[in-house]
């Protein structure tokens, strides 16, 4: 199997070819590990879990951003493999890219639960309630592993590095759709910027390359709908009031449940 890798050592960039033994069941990450073990110890790439849940090994495989650990050689159906670092990022070395901007964008949309009264969280007698139906409205966007493939695929990020990007916008929608969250207005002011949500023109490439089925494009279109509703009709995404949110503990005079019987029927 012929593997062509784009190398970069901080000074110059070049293409390097390797000839590697490979089985059809090997993943691209197996091939990379084999190259590092047997052919070239200087090759740099990120990896951790090898099972598609850490999002470290994102790279461009034959022109399409993908996770190396989840791409089998037999799926590629090509004689040779061409590996490049992710598009639209600064390259540190070989296949390792600088994710600083990416993480900062994620942080800028406040990806955490915002309550107007933070005391609620400490004084709550029981946990915050989310019904299965409510959960289904945002849980898909919660599966993001922050691999950064969507920003490599996005055509707007390619020309506009200030654009927040599909990952951050999808996470913003995940928290806006959450009934426990009250930070809607706070986030809208960040998102409704000249490099915010409206720079998405629905090319859909982010959803196409997403390895976890998060579908960021869908989240962003729903986010646009929420922003329009807010600006035109002053309608906020409904968040749950503290009284509804917290399951009440049973009253003191409630009948106690019968003690559990350890006796097994048919036993001794």
């Amino acid at each position: 199997m012929k593997v062509r890798i784009r190398r970069f050592d901080g000074q110059k960039a070049w293409w390097q070819d390797y000839e590697v033994d490979a089985k059809p069941s090997d993943t691209v990450l197996d091939i990379l590990n084999r190259i590092r073990e047997k052919h070239d110890h200087t090759l740099a790439f990120r990896q951790s879990c090898q099972m598609g849940s850490c999002g470290s090994c994102g790279m461009v495989i034959n022109g399409l951003p993908a996770l190396a650990c989840q791409t089998r050689i037999s799926e590629l159906k090509t004689e040779s493999i061409r590996l490049e670092p992710l598009y639209n990022y600064k390259v540190i070395k070989d296949l390792v890219v600088d994710l600083t901007d990416f993480v900062n964008k994620h942080r800028s949309v406040k990806p955490w639960m915002i309550r107007k009264n933070p005391q609620e969280l400490e004084e709550a007698p029981m946990e915050f309630k989310v019904t299965p139906d409510q959960n289904l409205t945002f849980v898909q966007f919660d599966y993001c592993i922050m691999c950064g493939l969507c920003l490599a695929a996005c055509p707007t990020v390619a020309i506009d590095p200030l654009f927040l990007g599909p990952q951050a916008l999808a996470q913003a929608y995940r928290y806006i759709a959450d009934p426990r969250d009250e930070g809607f207005e706070e986030r809208i002011e960040i998102l409704d910027d000249s490099h915010g949500v409206w720079r998405c023109h629905f090319a859909g490439a982010c959803s196409y390359v997403c390895p976890k089925g998060v579908d960021p494009a869908k989240a962003i279109q729903y986010l646009k709908k929420e922003v329009l509703k807010y600006r035109l009709l002053h309608k906020k995404k409904a968040s749950v009031k503290p009284a509804e949110l917290i399951q009440k503990p049973p009253p003191a005079n409630a009948p106690k449940p019968p003690p559990f019987d350890f006796k097994i029927e048919g036993g001794e």
Binding site: P85, P155, A158, I159, A203, G204, A205
Partner: peptide
Amino acid sequence: KEEKRYKSGLLRSLRPYKFNLERYTYT
């Protein structure tokens, strides 16, 4: 050269090759 983002720019953003149909419609 190190500071430049890899393969970004106007032509790259208008090049939908290998991607989905929606990206062709975007271009």
